[in-house]
Amino acid sequence: MELVTSQKLFDGQQQQYTHQAESVNCEMTFSIYLPPQADTQPVPVLYWLSGLTCTDQNFVTKSGAQQFAAKHGVAIVCPDTSPRGAEVPDDPEQAWDFGLGAGFYVNATQSPWKQYYQMYDYVVQELPRLVEKKFAVTTQRAISGHSMGGHGALTIALKNPERYRSMSAFSPIAAPINCPWGQKALGLYLGDDQEKWKDYDSCELIKVSSNAVPGLVDQGSADDFLQQQLNTQQLIDTVSRANYPMQVRMQPGYDHSYFFIATFIEQHIAFHAKHFDNT
């Protein structure tokens, strides 16, 4: 693991690292914010998953989250959104909604993607092992994300309720089996059997969940992707029918941008902090 950059921020440290990742078979980059409390004791960790076309840096530079992480004594880890490198296959049509920058946080089963696109294993297993070995953090984890990353955060927590204290999302792709982004990505990464797609669909996972993880979702009413891609109403209906402990809030006038995230990120970090011990 190699340190790329390090800056002091709200009395903590914002750092970026590279490391060779076995699960995705390439060098990966991630960022971590260590709050000042980490100087004296291990702190819990919030994993943030970003959306289509993003890297580990979008949330770091645009969200303003570090001041609230410092307040609550929470580390924030931001992985990249896909494997990277000249050898990693990309969308054959060079589209932005698949391939590089668009790993969808699944374990691909189809060629040529399966050799590299094992982002689910990377986020759930390999990266936490590394973080918990190298930094002053506890095994108390939460997970959050935006858009494709919101999809990733919700599905990962729903599939691993024993690993996460809480989950949240901004503008998540809530039912990827029913939207163009999801149908393209799941079809290419997982193949034509749509029953297998359900394993990475938040609404489908909530229907069969037996161990609940507390959840918070914010969605802007002025989001250009709301109707065609995000399926927020389906999430609201599914949560209601399942009596699942997730609050889904429609925020009037907000769009899909990081301005929206910056507005509500303090509330999300406070939500996660209350589910950690001693923060």
Rank of each mutant, 00 (worst) to 15 (best):
W181P: 05
Q125S: 13
Y164V: 08
A142F: 01
S166A: 15
K133E: 09
S147C: 06
W181M: 12
R165E: 05
T155F: 04
H146K: 12
G149D: 05
S144D: 09
S168D: 12
G149A: 10
A153N: 08
S144G: 13
K133P: 09
A174M: 10
G182T: 13
S171V: 14
G150P: 06
R141W: 05
N160P: 05
M119N: 13
E162R: 12
A153S: 10
Q118N: 11
N178A: 07
P176R: 14
Y164A: 10
Q118L: 06
V123W: 15
N178H: 06
K159F: 09
P161M: 00
E162V: 07
K133F: 08
S166P: 15
R141C: 02
V124N: 07
V124W: 10
S166I: 03
L130E: 04
A136P: 08
Y117V: 00
Y122S: 04
P180V: 12
S147Y: 02
G149R: 13
Q140L: 06
S168F: 14
K134P: 03
A157F: 15
L158W: 11
G152E: 05
S111R: 12
Q140E: 12
D121S: 10
P112M: 02
K134H: 09
K114H: 00
Y164C: 11
F170T: 14
L130G: 09
Y116L: 04
M167P: 14
Y122N: 03
V124M: 07
K114C: 00
T139E: 04
S166N: 15
G150H: 02
Q118E: 04
K159E: 05
G149S: 11
V123T: 11
P180M: 06
Y116T: 00
G145A: 03
T139A: 04
P180L: 01
L158N: 10
G152M: 10
Q140W: 03
K159Q: 13
S171I: 12
I177C: 06
R129M: 13
G150L: 00
T138D: 05
A136Y: 11
R165K: 14
P176Q: 05
A153E: 07
